[in-house]
Amino acid sequence: MAVPAGALLVDALQALLTDRHASPVAVERWERVEPWAVARVWLRRSAAGLPRSVVVKWIPDGQREARTASWRLRTELAALRFLDEDLGAGLAPGVIAADTAARFLVLEDLAPRVPLDQLLRRDGAAAHGERLAAFARARGALSAATAGRAEAYYARRAALGPVDAVADLAGRHAPLQQAAIEHASALGVPLDGRVAHELAAAMGELARPGPFLALSNGDAEANNLLLHATGSADARLIDFEFAGYAHALTDAVCLYVPGPAWLSVGDPTTTGLADQYRRTLACGIPEAEDDRRYGYGLAAACVSWALVRLQRFARLDSRPPGDHSRLQLIATLEAVARTAETYRTLPRLTAWIRRVAVVLRRRWPDADQDFADSARFPPYQARH
């Protein structure tokens, strides 16, 4: 069947919902949520049990790597049904209907919730402390609810098509890390034997998470959390296209280290976000209460992210002075080192990361800034 787009999408949606509800369903209007292949669709009230509006997510006709995109759509479908139907977690939108052959999903409309990152960009982090706390709790709750349930999830996922649980555990960014090490060596900061040994052990922790094995949506950032702009901080996670089981603490990195959108995220240990996350996580993974084990896993996850970001060095080096991505890379490396120091773990890796940051500060004088200056670099300041 051809991939629906525009009027074809409307026709396919009406046909699917009519068939599922044994009653005519008509689309009243729809509104594209740019720039994604997502639309909010209002329905005429003709079928019992259907909401007034739904969200439709699809793969556009002619999209590059369409087979990969189809794989992602099936992954999202499996993850959302697993959370709702198997666990009753109440953490993500429910699936109303799906047509994997036509490559679209019909999801619960979570409006009037809005993405957290929009609120942070508009108002700053200080205005949304409780919403950031809800973000931290939601990340912990996803891991707590899904720990120990990998077999059930992969049974659902395998029913929709082939899946590679080993690749999920490694993470889609893992192949980028070797390039980061090569860049550091070219900058005069090679991995010596002791640092390499510590790095191997840290990556081994992520590859063998034990009780910390839990479902991640694969993109633990503020743009993928929807909540109310005022009043209730009731939150929902979205975007499960890259969902899979991995070390739970990879989902905590976003609280400690800048993600792609931010120059800084502040110190979650002083804002209380770290405690919010950890207490929620421990409800399903009691081992999170062990300081040594928790700190080691968190630091390992942060180091892994630092390498993913460092592999961009050559691209950033070619950009003009003042580019925010240079600031972001240095802030990222230093935040990773600070996190490991807080938990008194991975000392050699921490020193190596700090040396790389020092070299970058010297190479990019425009990025030699004081990130501790909260007036210039407030938490969740956007990267431009």
Rank of each mutant, 00 (worst) to 15 (best):
229 A>H: 05
229 A>E: 10
230 T>S: 15
230 T>F: 14
230 T>P: 10
230 T>N: 12
232 S>P: 15
232 S>M: 13
232 S>E: 15
233 A>I: 11
234 D>R: 13
234 D>L: 13
234 D>A: 14
234 D>E: 15
234 D>C: 13
234 D>G: 10
235 A>I: 02
235 A>C: 05
236 R>D: 09
236 R>W: 06
237 L>M: 06
238 I>Y: 06
239 D>F: 12
240 F>R: 00
240 F>P: 00
241 E>T: 13
241 E>M: 14
241 E>G: 15
241 E>D: 15
241 E>S: 15
242 F>H: 13
242 F>K: 11
243 A>W: 12
243 A>Y: 12
244 G>K: 07
244 G>E: 10
244 G>N: 08
245 Y>H: 09
245 Y>I: 05
245 Y>M: 05
245 Y>T: 00
246 A>M: 14
247 H>L: 11
247 H>N: 10
248 A>G: 02
248 A>H: 00
249 L>S: 01
249 L>K: 00
250 T>Y: 08
251 D>K: 06
251 D>C: 07
252 A>H: 07
253 V>I: 05
254 C>T: 10
254 C>F: 11
254 C>R: 02
256 Y>P: 03
257 V>M: 12
257 V>D: 09
257 V>W: 08
257 V>Y: 07
257 V>C: 13
258 P>V: 07
258 P>W: 08
258 P>K: 05
259 G>D: 13
259 G>A: 14
259 G>K: 04
260 P>I: 12
260 P>V: 10
261 A>N: 07
261 A>R: 09
261 A>E: 14
262 W>N: 06
262 W>H: 00
262 W>K: 01
263 L>Y: 06
263 L>V: 08
263 L>C: 13
263 L>F: 10
264 S>H: 12
264 S>N: 08
264 S>V: 14
264 S>W: 11
264 S>K: 10
264 S>F: 11
265 V>C: 06
266 G>Q: 06
266 G>N: 01
267 D>P: 05
267 D>S: 03
268 P>R: 00
268 P>L: 06
269 T>I: 06
269 T>D: 09
269 T>P: 02
270 T>Q: 07
270 T>V: 15
270 T>W: 05
271 T>H: 03
272 G>A: 11
272 G>I: 04
272 G>R: 05
272 G>V: 09
273 L>P: 03
273 L>Q: 03
274 A>S: 04
274 A>F: 00
274 A>E: 04
276 Q>E: 15
276 Q>W: 07
277 Y>F: 15
277 Y>D: 02
277 Y>W: 12
277 Y>S: 01
277 Y>N: 01
278 R>T: 00
281 L>P: 01
281 L>N: 01
283 C>Q: 15
283 C>L: 15
283 C>H: 12
284 G>R: 03
285 I>V: 14
285 I>Q: 04
285 I>A: 07
286 P>V: 07
286 P>S: 08
286 P>K: 08
287 E>T: 04
287 E>M: 12
287 E>N: 09
287 E>F: 09
288 A>V: 04
290 D>M: 13
290 D>A: 14
290 D>E: 15
291 D>I: 06
291 D>F: 14
291 D>A: 14
